[in-house]
Design a protein around this nucleic acid. Structure first.
Lengths: 152, 152
DNA sequence: ATGCACATGCGAATGATTCTCAGTTAATAT
DNA sequence: ATATTAACTGAGAATCATTCGCATGTGCAT
């Protein structure tokens, strides 16, 4: 139960949501999940703290958190959705196709170009989804969260 | 049954696949599907030609076509997968968040930057997924295939 | 303290996709 | 042409992630 968690809780309360036991715990787990876990993994961690908390509640609470912008939901591999606490600073992801490892990065240049491209097509850019897939170049292969490599 | 279709058929045969009645029809429908339909929509079109063709067969055949690189499978909106015949020239997509309209575009600059970013992170870029979301700027709103706007 | 709207848990429902399996059929050899 | 056989197909069951329905439980404003 750290400051991170408190921030989540605070935002949640501000947006008129009730702070319940399950939500406290889920907020706590999410705030410390810096490895882009999927929802069953989150439920596993939550259940390790309080086994009475159901998967439904995790789904529902995450939806609430997402609606308030407290977390982000990614679908890197087409299949299950993966969660990360909302970052102060926006970033994108590179997936190691060999290990599933998720690397975060940001590039202002790419974002500028995207807005530029959209404008040229007659659109105002409201959002985008960018995921890079790659393979480590002639270096040690590091660890990585299990994730189905490749993307549909 | 046009040249496009024949090309699909030819590629299919080359890769050691059998050319069956259903596959002919599916190839034909896919070759003319320039609107990124989802799989049930494809099945609808296929069934309009031969109602005996099952949804399973459409799924299976599309998987075969995809494995051979004859089509591309996109998951723009998180939910169902959408199909397009493989293009000579690679391109990305911009989704009109108001109408679901899919606009194709390409930007060498963005692709160069992506490879650059990956390299800086110590990766060789093997692929990427880029989807822009936008809203038409002060112009007539055009038509668009129905698609759930926004993306998780 | 109390009430009630919102939250929870459980299991059932959904929706897309995949699998199973018995019956067909294309491609190849005869 | 015909037989052979491995690949293909249709129908429905199975799977998997996610959502729903509903009876019960519980924050929190009064």
């Amino acid at each position: 139960m750290t400051t991170d968690t408190d921030v989540l809780i605070a935002h949640c309360r501000e947006s008129g949501q009730r702070i319940t036991g399950p939500r406290r715990i889920i907020a706590d787990v999410v705030a410390h999940a810096h490895d882009h876990p999927d929802i069953s993994e989150l439920h596993r961690r939550v259940a390790a703290i309080d086994p009475r908390i159901s998967l439904s509640t995790v789904y529902r609470t995450l939806k609430v958190f997402a609606a308030t912008g407290l977390i982000e939901r990614h679908s890197f591999a087409g299949g299950r959705v993966r969660i990360e606490p909302a970052a102060e600073r926006h970033h994108d992801h590179l997936i190691n196709v060999d290990t599933g490892e998720v690397v975060e990065f940001r590039s202002d240049a790419i974002e500028l170009l995207q807005a530029e491209v959209a404008k040229q097509l007659g659109f105002e850019l409201t959002g985008y989804k960018l995921v890079l897939f790659g393979r480590r170049t002639a270096k040690s292969d590091e660890q990585g969260a299990p994730l189905r490599p490749n993307c549909e």
